[in-house]
Nucleic acid binder design. Structure first.
Lengths: 343, 343
DNA sequence: AAGCTGGCTTGAATCGTTTCACTTTGTCGT
DNA sequence: ACGACAAAGTGAAACGATTCAAGCCAGCTT
């Protein structure tokens, strides 16, 4: 209940063995005779000994911890990915500790510093904005890094990402197949790579259909609230300029747009307006009208990210790999075909 | 690009000073003359030196890290609380690292072990199930612990929690005030303390109203899916046994119940059935019918938890405090009064 | 000129663990 | 009975930072 914490030395004294033996019990139990091992184990339990990871790391030079920095842990895409990463890392004997940058470069920088000082085995990160000098510094110090949900064109780092251009194409192609022609794309600034890619896919799909048009609607952020605001602007623009199909850069936006369209615009989904999102978060299914969307293989991405990272840890020379997953169309009520709906 | 990492010794050699001086530049810059400091700073930048936190901790005996273990980081209550905790901790010069137990005692135990081995300054935890022997072990080793969203009747630990009994009372009182009399409570096993408290509050409210009845409906989990399943059972039980007001132990359940009621039961909310949830997650507002709910002061809880913890770190003798916040009723469309609705 | 003061700097000791070369003990074959 | 050999256990060195008593030196007082 007082004094200083119990050290391996205390355990050794208590069990009447040398410190090296206690260490062996902890790290190489097979090297220690059964009777001795039992005595040491008992001493550990009795004294409530807890290994000092700082000392262990200092000597061993490496931790068993992986740092994961996400853009927004409140976003189901990231929380699901994080969960999968943790599970797989645990299988492989490592622990994932999580940092939430909240799209803030300063917080990201703080977490990078903290994790690097802790000498994590490696870093999984979905970076805020462009790849910073800070990340390249990590590379030059040989800290394994795997980018999540972002490709690295310079090929300094491995990455797991999704072909968002294909996802955008899938989404808009689906709207066109349902007979929609006046398409709108709602997304936050195109400076965000993912948004730009989805937009590019949308453009390609529209380009394949001569009588279709594409309009860009800017949202302030990728949230339900921002979606609602964007949706209001769309419905208030008047019938002449009203789209008949909207593709949102993520499900949160789509749910916001849907609210505005139904409650403020007084329109029907999908009869008057088809709506499709991106991500397939849990709530997509539970929206007013179940939301069609594009699904990314979240668990697989989390798992793969850890796999790549551990690969680079085992073999620092291993080549960088850019793994790109294909997204998948999930059809629900919000894009019911216009023709069917009119019967 | 190769060899072993840069140590403080390397920096000292490069700047032509002693190791102690480099350490002083890092920790007590005022003790070092300006010229020397500049030379050392330059050497640090040039060599890309990163402080080894393991060594620092080993010597200093303490880290600048707080561990936070939550039940489910996908739950907006926790992600919002975590964000607030991180922000406030950063203000106070500490870093929060996050672990997600996923309601799994094994994972919780792993994170407790990892954090204790890392000698975190202290632990914020919303424990899975009952307070385990493991937590009491922490107490006996003088690791500061603050319980989140859970009181400790033994007063071993400080805690921040919400008066869930009052929340349950508020919710059901509101249903009764709207003219509802056949109340149902949907929640996962009452073995969960929070669920039991909310149920108790519901019971108290119903007790105050002679002609009201309360029925308990068991859900498998606290998710949208489990809510939908529970909702289906309710509506399929037939009109005679149908409640006219439902209080769900959280918003996710409520959203699931709402889906079942609307889509499978073909009923109207709030006309046929009033519905109220708990938590006020972002999506409560964006449900088919905007969901009435009980709001907990999440940010304040996260901040307060860190505050209590840092208090105990500064003064180990400080007494344990049980901070209980009062929840707040948020009225939206899902509990529109029956009378109004029938006009 | 000697003594003193205070600001800077030095470098050895220290934290708790792992590692490893070495010693001790016990077994077996001949 | 002897040497060889394996298994078990020992304890000092090392990891990289912080701390602190001690040393140095320039400038000042007497």
């Amino acid at each position: 209940m007082n004094s200083r914490p119990v050290s391996i030395k205390d355990v050794a004294d208590h069990a009447q063995v040398a410190v090296g033996t206690v260490s062996n019990v902890l790290n190489h139990p097979s090297r220690v005779a059964e009777r001795t091992r039992a005595r040491v184990t008992a001493a550990i339990a009795e004294l409530g000994f807890v290994r000092n990871d700082a000392a262990r790391q200092l000597r061993a030079g490496q931790s068993r911890t992986i740092g994961l920095i996400v853009l927004d842990i409140g976003n189901p895409f990231f929380s699901s990915l994080a969960r999968a990463a943790e599970d797989y890392a645990a299988e492989r004997g490592s622990t994932v500790v999580l940092g939430d940058s909240g799209h803030d470069a300063g917080r990201e920088a703080r977490y990078i510093d903290v994790f690097e000082q802790q000498r994590v085995q490696g870093l999984l990160i979905s970076p805020v904005g462009d790849l910073t000098a800070r990340l390249e510094a990590l590379h030059s110090r040989a800290v394994p890094v795997v980018l999540v949900d972002r490709k690295d064109d310079l090929k300094l780092f491995s990455s797991v990402s999704v072909d968002d251009e294909a996802g955008g194409y899938l989404a808009v192609r689906h709207l066109l197949d349902g007979g929609r022609r006046r398409i709108a794309f709602v997304g936050a600034g195109a400076s965000i790579q993912q948004v730009a890619d989805r937009m590019a896919g949308a453009r390609r799909a529209v380009g394949e259909c001569p009588d279709a048009t594409l309009e860009f609607v800017l949202a302030e952020a990728m949230t339900v609230l921002a979606g609602r605001a964007a949706g209001e602007r769309v419905v208030q623009a008047g019938p002449a300029r009203m789209p008949d199909g909207i593709f949102c850069a993520n499900d949160l936006l789509a749910i916001g747009v849907m609210q505005a369209v139904l409650l403020i615009g007084g329109l029907k989904v999908p009869e008057d307006l088809a709506l499709i999102g991106y991500d397939d978060i849990d709530f997509a299914e539970s929206a007013v009208v179940p939301l069609s969307t594009i699904r990314r293989p979240t668990e697989l991405m989390g798992r793969t990210a850890v796999e790549l990272l551990l690969g680079e840890i085992d073999d620092t020379q291993s080549e960088r790999r850019q793994v790109v997953f294909q997204p998948e169309l999930v059809v629900r009520g919000s894009t019911g075909s216009r023709i069917t709906a009119q019967i």
